[in-house]
Design a protein around this nucleic acid. Structure first.
Lengths: 206, 206
DNA sequence: GTCTATAGCTGGATAGAC
DNA sequence: GTCTATCCAGCTATAGAC
């Protein structure tokens, strides 16, 4: 009896501390996202990050083992966001509408946060490799995409790859050559029509 | 008479020295390309570069004003190579063949040297902006591409943008998700057919 | 022009007091 | 857990002898 009460109190205190800890980690990560959004993924010195988060450099190490651990946590958050952006989509009735909505959703996800896109999809932090835990939601989201495409009539793995190439192509050109504009993203309806026509012709041939 | 002879000898000596200088610069640049091809654009410390080129760090500064000047010269070389890769193409008779050849040529140019691709098209060296002189051949090459597409029947600027998005999409997916493989590059014929069909339908509608 | 030596800076990470 | 102070490694760039 006494023992179980002690355990309860201990676990409650542990939970409370753990919550504080998670909250502090989240504060640091929020500051990190602000900085990379403003100045790019490369511009994230721990000193500046700590100052932005209202703490000092050693304190950062109370919450993260290393700088790579920070990138890993950011990758995890980005992957979670990506997965979340997928499940929100609702069936609109026909394949074109569904695919167009999916495409616009993906493009918006990417161009609205270039740093996040580069971290998640372009492996552009030198020497950083995401841990399996952080990578898992990204895999889940890609699997969701595959399933959605299948529901929308796209089942050939080659066509799935064409689809991802189409979308990332629009995104990359937009980001690289017209940042902040819509020169490429506005082509999405054209491109979706092009893709669907192509897929239906391929099906006829098989 | 004496004077003009002196001038001749002086200018000859100047030319000779200038040739030596250009040769030395080329040696450094060749070493730089080797290093970035092996370890990425970020991995180019001047110490290692100098050692690779068989000289010491201060000597590098005898040929280049700064590290950015080295990147600028590399950008210029990459842009020249890109322009050269364009003019080699010959007319094969029909639009599909010509476009497919153009596409394969571009894709091969990109995936055969990822570092060059990233430097030239992805602006991925933090803080580096190419000088107008280095940028000029890149502009020329893009203009060549536009003209070639026009000859092959693609004149709508929107379709030109779709074309560049298609190709960079294949390249980016290939580089990011299957480096060294051909999972996306092998889709090029499919994609060219898709694009051409789409363009001809758009024309019918106008 | 080429070297040795080093300045000057910035970065990640740690020691140790509190 | 949080700080002050500091270490140490790496980088670009320069000074000055030869």
């Amino acid at each position: 009896m006494q023992e179980s009460l002690t355990m309860l109190k201990n676990s409650a205190r542990v939970d409370w501390r753990e919550a504080r800890r998670q909250s502090a980690r989240a504060t640091v990560l929020a500051a990190a996202w602000e900085m990379v959004r403003a100045d790019g993924l490369a511009a994230l010195p721990l000193r500046d990050l700590a100052r932005h988060a209202g703490i000092t450099t050693p304190t950062v190490y109370a919450y993260f083992d290393s700088k790579n651990a920070i990138f890993d946590a950011m990758f995890g958050e980005a992957a979670e966001s990506f997965a979340d952006s997928k499940v929100e989509l609702v069936d609109k009735g026909d394949h074109y509408e569904n695919l167009a909505a999916d495409a616009k959703n993906f493009i918006e996800f990417c161009v609205s946060d270039v740093a996040r896109y580069q971290l998640l999809f372009q492996h552009s932090v030198p020497g950083f490799i995401p841990s399996p835990q952080s990578y898992a939601p990204a895999v889940r989201a890609l699997e969701l995409t595959r399933e959605q495409l299948a529901r929308y009539g796209v089942r050939d793995p080659r066509q799935v790859d064409v689809w991802t190439a189409l979308l990332t192509g629009l995104v990359d050109q937009q980001i690289s050559n017209d940042p902040g504009g819509d020169r490429w993203t506005r082509l999405v309806d054209d491109v979706v029509r092009m893709f669907l026509t192509h897929c239906s012709r391929e099906e006829d041939h098989s």
